[in-house]
Amino acid sequence: MKYLPLYLMAMAVIILDQITKWTVLAKFHDFERLNIIPNFFDLTLVYNYGAAFSFLANHSGWQKYFFIVLAFVISGWLANSVRKGEFGKLGNFAAAMIIGGAFGNVIDRFIHGKVVDFILVYYQDWYYPAFNVADSFICVGVALLIIDGIKQAKKAKQAA
């Protein structure tokens, strides 16, 4: 019961991520783009066989299993750290965001063999690599986890 809000947060991330991906898959053809904000934001359907910024995407397929295992290992470490009380409230919330995002992408790897991406941010000739809702929660979660780590370090220093 103590961790119920964190489980619910992680599940909400997974559900939101999968709903958005299935919606895009149902409405778009591969590489189709829909301009939302001119010269800034499009929806598009692309796939990532690797990780962030297509890291390891051009390999023979072993990376799919590597990233699945990595998601389980990192999620297990985060869940154990939450259980042991190593994070503050913000860190616990961040861990749930990261776990939910990681498993949103793991589901894609199991179902599609790759991650579905659809958010494209750009300006003129500059493009940020396409990403998805899970990626967004992972990035925000990591930033919040860093902030929590700084807060926890300050508390520990003050207590010493």
Results as ranks from 00 to 15, higher is better:
residue 62 W to A: 08
residue 136 S to I: 08
residue 157 K to N: 03
residue 122 Y to C: 02
residue 158 Q to F: 00
residue 48 N to E: 05
residue 12 A to Y: 01
residue 100 G to V: 10
residue 103 F to Y: 08
residue 123 Y to I: 08
residue 39 N to Q: 10
residue 18 Q to G: 02
residue 22 W to V: 08
residue 36 I to R: 09
residue 157 K to P: 00
residue 11 M to A: 13
residue 152 Q to R: 07
residue 74 I to W: 06
residue 38 P to I: 02
residue 151 K to E: 01
residue 6 L to G: 08
residue 137 F to E: 00
residue 110 F to Y: 15
residue 139 C to D: 02
residue 28 F to T: 05
residue 7 Y to S: 09
residue 160 A to I: 05
residue 66 F to Y: 14
residue 11 M to C: 12
residue 9 M to I: 14
residue 50 G to R: 05
residue 156 A to L: 11
residue 125 D to Q: 10
residue 95 A to C: 11
residue 13 V to W: 03
residue 58 N to H: 12
residue 62 W to I: 14
residue 29 H to M: 09
residue 50 G to H: 04
residue 142 V to D: 01
residue 37 I to E: 04
residue 152 Q to L: 05
residue 15 I to M: 12
residue 133 V to R: 02
residue 132 N to H: 05
residue 84 K to F: 13
residue 99 I to Q: 12
residue 7 Y to V: 13
residue 50 G to N: 03
residue 70 L to P: 05
residue 6 L to S: 09
residue 77 W to V: 15
residue 130 A to C: 06
residue 10 A to L: 10
residue 12 A to D: 00
residue 112 H to N: 15
residue 97 M to T: 09
residue 109 R to C: 11
residue 9 M to N: 03
residue 48 N to R: 04
residue 120 L to F: 07
residue 118 F to E: 01
residue 99 I to T: 09
residue 26 A to F: 14
residue 59 H to Y: 07
residue 146 I to E: 00
residue 157 K to V: 00
residue 95 A to F: 02
residue 152 Q to T: 00
residue 17 D to W: 06
residue 44 T to D: 02
residue 91 G to C: 11
residue 139 C to I: 00
residue 118 F to P: 05
residue 17 D to S: 09
residue 79 A to T: 10
residue 66 F to N: 09
residue 64 K to W: 06
